[in-house]
């Protein structure tokens, strides 16, 4: 476990020392701020909870994009620069490498996401919303981010090219996103399967309203687990090749 923590700490340091880390923070804040002003605040009178709901809706988009951008380099970069050999030749399990990398990305995503906190705060000052709504929304964002990051980690394990890793991750995330479209054009029970599989639609909507359902939490954690498990297997398989 301590190896996981060591790797996570080092990786988080790398994010904060690298350009890409700050670019991602700046990008998310800029886009979220724009959307917040244009849509959540603009467009006629709204109730505070509606504004907040909208804020979490478009924040989920930027969170997913940020997650892919954060995760694509995690393992691909290690392979590209050869530092993976350091980890491979150290007495640590492949699972610890993957988990450490993932946790650092999650911590960084948490920093990015919480940096947007001033926007709901503005709503709270000028209107009336519950803390529960804000907390629930952010919890949802982190869960959605966690699942996306895990998929990105898996994509990053697949190739040594960071560009390819980013494209693969993005494709997987988009495929998981648009599953709900398949749910609309298929018949039951297939439609149920597809809509429940979707990364966003059914599972994120309750969070937008500040409602936390156990099944949604379980869904995001399950996606995270499966993707990280797959990434670990990929890493293990590399040793045989």
């Amino acid at each position: 476990m301590s190896a996981t923590f060591l790797i996570a700490r080092r990786e988080l340091g790398a994010y904060l020392r690298s350009m890409i880390g700050w670019v991602i923070i700046a990008g998310v804040l800029a886009v979220d701020g724009l959307l917040f002003n244009a849509f959540a605040l603009g467009g006629g009178d709204k109730r505070s909870s509606e504004v907040l709901s909208l804020f979490f809706y478009f924040s989920s988009g930027t969170t997913m994009i940020a997650s892919v951008l954060i995760a694509f380099r995690l393992l691909a970069e290690e392979r590209q620069t050869g530092t993976i050999n350091l980890l491979y030749s150290s007495p640590i399990r492949d699972g610890e490498i993957v988990l450490g990398k993932f946790l650092s990305a999650l911590a960084f995503l948490a920093i990015v996401t919480l940096a947007t906190g001033f926007m709901p705060m503005l709503v709270m000052i000028h209107g009336k919303v519950s803390y529960g709504h804000v907390a629930g929304g952010y919890f949802g964002l982190l869960l959605l981010g966690s699942a996306t990051l895990a998929i990105g980690t898996f994509g990053s394990a697949l190739t040594r090219s960071q560009v390819l890793a980013a494209i693969l991750s993005a494709c997987m995330v988009v495929a998981m996103l648009v599953a709900w479209l398949l749910g609309r054009i298929t018949e039951r029970p297939l439609s149920e399967v597809f809509s429940n599989l979707s990364l966003h639609g059914l599972h994120f909507q309750p969070f937008q309203a500040g409602i936390v359902h156990l099944r949604d939490v379980v869904y995001y954690l399950a996606v995270t687990y499966v993707a990280l498990f797959a990434a670990t297997r990929v890493l293990e398989a590399r040793r045989w090749r």
């Binding site: 340091g13 790398a14 020392r17 620069t81 050869g82 530092t83 050999n85």
Partner: peptide
């Protein structure tokens, strides 16, 4: 190639 984290 030495496995170095160049930003450290």
């Amino acid at each position: 190639t030495p496995p170095l984290y160049t930003e450290m």
